[in-house]
């Protein structure tokens, strides 16, 4: 067993007295694909927001690669090579697909005003490199012919692909994915999932995935954490979780029933 890359210890977040995340502790192993499941409102998205610095916890700590990142802001969290996607895909609607990808690049010379004014040659060269990288990635995920299209014209599924492409633009250690398969037609879903698996296999990223589709989660994850009412309810391999009667009752409940009828 390899070490934990992400450790959450006693994390608590209350909204108006109601705890969305309630003394939650969990660990994600380095290099794993870990699933996070739980009923609607269990606090999964809130947990992601706490880890990535969009929310400040009322109690508890988050450690990433052994470092305390609890009080960092999102852009600082990113610099420790942790990124996330959002439950509703986010992009820059008025920017082209290519520009959407280029924004995320790090160490951009041209992001300093001085360089933008007086060293435009170097800035341009660097931008060309980034553009080349972006085009390669777009080829890989088969969006290349849309590279000059404003992102607002992409379909819902293509936007999800764009999000994955964005994760390939930079060197990351871990990505939190909030329902990457939601709202995607089944044909595209397989493609997205294979790209996600590829992130883990080829790039060695640790993935922490919230997903409601049980088939997907059981297929691609090696560990599953079940969250109920803001807590880490149980965890284990897909087989263990699937056969745990308490999980079936708490969460899989109706889903498990349906499976039997099939």
């Amino acid at each position: 067993m390899s070490e934990a890359i992400l450790q959450v210890k006693g994390l608590t977040k209350k909204f108006g007295g109601v705890a969305a995340v309630n003394d939650c502790s969990l660990e994600v192993r380095k290099g794993s694909i870990t699933g996070l499941i739980g009923p609607n409102g269990a606090g999964k998205t809130t947990l992601f927001n706490l880890i990535t610095g969009f929310l400040v916890p009322d109690a508890g700590k988050v450690f990433f690669k052994g470092k305390d990142i609890t009080s960092l802001t999102p852009h600082q969290v990113f610099k420790s090579r942790l990124f996330r996607s959002f439950q509703i895909a986010r992009d820059y609607p008025e920017m082209t697909v290519l520009e959407n990808l280029m924004v995320i690049c790090e160490e951009q010379l041209g992001e300093g005003l001085f360089n933008a004014w007086f060293r435009s040659g170097q800035v341009q060269n660097q931008q060309k490199q980034f553009a080349r990288k972006a085009v390669d990635i777009l080829k890989f995920i088969e969006l290349e012919q849309k590279k000059d299209l404003p992102a607002k014209y992409l379909s819902g599924g293509e936007k999800k692909l764009l999000e994955i492409a964005r994760m390939m633009m930079v060197d990351l250690d871990m990505v939190l994915l909030d329902e990457p398969g939601a709202g995607v037609p089944p044909a595209l879903q397989d493609k997205i999932m294979s790209h996600i698996q590829n992130l883990s296999r080829e790039r060695g990223l640790t993935l922490f995935i919230v997903e409601h589709d049980m088939d997907i989660i059981m297929n691609i994850c090696d560990t599953i954490i079940v969250m109920v009412e803001g807590r880490n309810f149980t965890q284990g391999t897909p087989q263990q979780v699937r056969s745990n009667p308490a999980v079936i009752e708490a969460y899989l409940g109706r889903g498990g029933e349906e499976k039997k009828h099939e």
Partner: peptide, 14 residues
Amino acid sequence: RAIREDETLTDMSG
């Protein structure tokens, strides 16, 4: 422009 269009994503992008 990125900040105007989606500040949350830009923040998460470092």
